[in-house]
Nucleic acid binder design. Structure first.
Lengths: 243, 243
DNA sequence: TCGTTTTTATTTGTCTGACATTTAAAAGTC
DNA sequence: GACTTTTAAATGTCAGACAAATAAAAACGA
């Protein structure tokens, strides 16, 4: 682990990069303790605040965790799926909101990925996941549900569908695509008729998953994508006409 | 932007969280300048090193960038697809390597997602992307190619396929799934016959994409998944027998 | 001897104050 | 007016100190 003294980059960034490389490279393994801050500052020949800035950078990426006390220190952190989900969701959300990605593009990506999960979910979903899907469909039918709550329920429905594939890697990848759409979906107001159509399609999809019919589930998702797109289109046209 | 003085968490983590929330929430917009470190330390009633640790945490997530000098400071950073790709790839890679995800699971996820791109790619790929695919196929046929180089070329081929869908959100999501597999693939040694079969399937896929035949491309990917899985199976069996 | 309490050493968390470096604008000079 | 110099403001880095947490070691009491 060394740094380039001629580089113009921040020392803390260089040090963080160096340690990160060691972790990715396998030189530092999970739960291994890093040298203390004082030892690191001796090693890299920098001050302790600089080392600390480097460690905070790593902590922000969930690459290390720190413990105070006699046997404390910084430890290489096992990146959990949970942590990775959370990172993935915020990154995806910011990516969409900061780069004016069109609703169409985001929607297309989301449904394309979800259709990839459908056949697996039809094979493997468990009773819990199916029950969640049914419960969310029921919730979506309640007449006094706010638009935000409707969207949140929609996300929960789709997460259950994705989790049904019983593949944590898929669930992780999809988390971003599904949840990052929520802010975009929240811009839409759903009329009672819109909701009815969506609920009907959700039923169709849940039934297909229930019966192990992957292709039917895919078709349902395809129809739902069309429905969502045309809904959004209407909203944007109305909004454009107003201004 | 406030912090909870009763919380036991690190001040720098709280401050980072507070600023992050402001960014996500839209209170701080892209390219907006944050208050100077001194102003922030006054505002949060902490010392400057603590504020700096918080800012480094945000910088590590590409949420802000800093500039030195008279008009410098910390600015809200537009999260670029490029930055997000890189984060996604390292996160996915670490996730796989640290959680002993089975080859099968990772492979299934990767090909399921890739099949989701195939129909779009068949419709939209441009000449460049097709040329890249052909070029990589050619490279994969060279007899004196190392296994690592073969894997790298494989990744390049599949990236071109994914990028052909002309949907940056898809490309971003897939980056992790495809690239994170590389370390796993590197554990495999490819015999000449193995390579020939893979190249043949790559040709089949490229032809399908060329002719705009999405379903055929999907079928090719399905076959490739089977091939990859059985290859890996053989390697693992051999390795198990040895020990 | 065993169990409890106290002490101690180590490590991270935070603060203060200082200086270095970079940068752009302001001031000065020709 | 164009160029150079100065200045001010901001981040980057350093040194040293103390606070707080924590576990191990030592001391103590029954």
């Amino acid at each position: 682990m060394k740094i380039d003294p001629t580089s113009s980059a921040d020392l803390s960034a260089q040090i963080a990069q160096s340690i990160k490389a060691a972790i990715i490279n396998g030189d530092l393994i999970v739960d291994q303790r890093l040298p203390s801050e004082t030892e690191l500052s001796d090693h890299f020949e920098v001050s302790r605040p600089t080392v600390r800035e480097a460690l905070k950078r790593l902590a922000a990426q969930s690459l290390i965790r720190t413990q105070r006390g006699a046997t404390g220190g910084a430890f290489v952190n096992r990146l959990s799926f949970e942590d990775a989900y959370a990172q993935q969701v915020t990154t995806s959300t910011l990516l969409l909101s900061m780069n004016d990605v069109s609703f169409q593009t985001a929607c297309e990506a989301r449904y394309a990925l979800e259709r990839a999960c459908a056949p697996l979910s039809a094979l493997r979903r468990n009773a819990d996941q199916l029950a969640t899907m049914r419960a969310e469909i029921f919730r979506q039918g309640q007449p006094n549900l706010s638009d935000e709550a409707f969207c949140a329920s929609d996300v929960a429905f789709h997460r259950a569908l994705v989790d049904g594939a019983a593949n944590p890697v898929l669930s992780y990848q999809l988390a971003g695509a599904v949840e990052a759409m929520q802010p975009l979906m929240n811009m839409i107001t759903f009329s009672a008729r819109d909701r009815a159509r969506i609920v009907a399609l959700h039923c169709e999809i849940a039934d297909a998953i229930d019966q192990g019919d992957g292709p039917a589930a895919s078709d349902g998702l395809q129809a739902l994508e069309q429905e969502t797109l045309s809904l959004a289109q209407k909203v944007f046209e109305t909004r454009a006409a107003k201004s």
